[in-house]
């Protein structure tokens, strides 16, 4: 499903963010990516959705080798994965409904499909009753739920999240995790970079720890393992 083979990433300024990553993630897995700040977690995530191009090595996602994909085909690859960020990345001028529908509009889905799918995912993240509200009328947790809804509305087999609970208070973070658990239970692969020790240690899943751009630990039922 997701495979990285000897992946290296050196930024143009000379920073070596990834130094030979080898990893295999099975379909339907739930994986935490942990490690100290500056370890290379975000770079790891960015290489997966091709925001960054590895300097060396290959990344195979859903059977597609990203290194061999032409620039024009990148949008096709991105349609098979949902991406979620710490800062939600919602469009302030659009309502909740419109923000989610946006993901389908830009890939030219039919209005009928858009309506069905948007209501379906808003139901899943429990925001059906706030569909007409604007992002600034919502709490942080609700905003993140909108962004999750947007990431899965296209029914991607993989969801990638970079510190999705980083901006949220602990209680809200748990609500968000419930949604990720639900998404994963429906068969979607989830890869999540996180700093949240409580969550990693409570909802135990596979843990990949990165330090200095290398995988230093990879455990099937791991714990957070850091003291922050």
């Amino acid at each position: 499903m997701i495979e990285m083979i000897d992946v290296w990433k050196t930024y143009p300024n000379g920073v070596m963010a990834l130094n030979g990553i080898d990893v295999y993630i099975e379909k339907g897995e739930f994986v935490y990516v942990v490690g100290p700040s500056g370890a290379g977690k975000s770079t790891f995530i960015k290489c997966m959705y091709r925001e960054e191009k590895p300097t060396k090595g290959s990344i195979i996602i859903n059977g597609t080798n990203l290194a061999k994909v032409k620039e024009r085909q990148i949008p096709k690859v991105r349609r098979k994965m949902g991406v979620i960020f710490q800062d939600f990345k919602l469009l302030p001028r659009l309502t909740v409904y419109e923000n989610v529908a946006f993901a389908l509009e830009v890939i030219e889905e039919s209005p009928k499909v858009i309506r069905e799918r948007v209501m379906e995912v808003l139901d899943l993240v429990k925001l059906k009753n706030k569909a007409r509200m604007f992002p600034d009328e919502l709490s942080g947790g609700e905003q993140q739920r909108v962004s999750i809804a947007r990431s899965i509305v296209n029914r991607p087999p993989v969801v990638i999240a970079d510190e999705p609970t980083g901006n949220l208070d602990p209680e809200t973070a748990w609500e968000i995790m419930d949604i990720f658990k639900e998404i994963n239970a429906r068969g979607t692969t989830v890869v999540m970079a996180t700093h949240n020790k409580e969550i990693v240690n409570t909802i135990t899943k596979r843990v990949i720890a990165i330090e200095g751009g290398r995988i230093v630990r990879d455990e099937a039922k791991g714990d957070y393992g850091y003291e922050d």
Binding site: K76, V77, L91, R150
Partner: peptide, 16 residues
Amino acid sequence: RREIEIMKLVGATNGF
């Protein structure tokens, strides 16, 4: 800019 960034994330083509 933000809009374009999100469009790219969800797989909009450059042409679009």
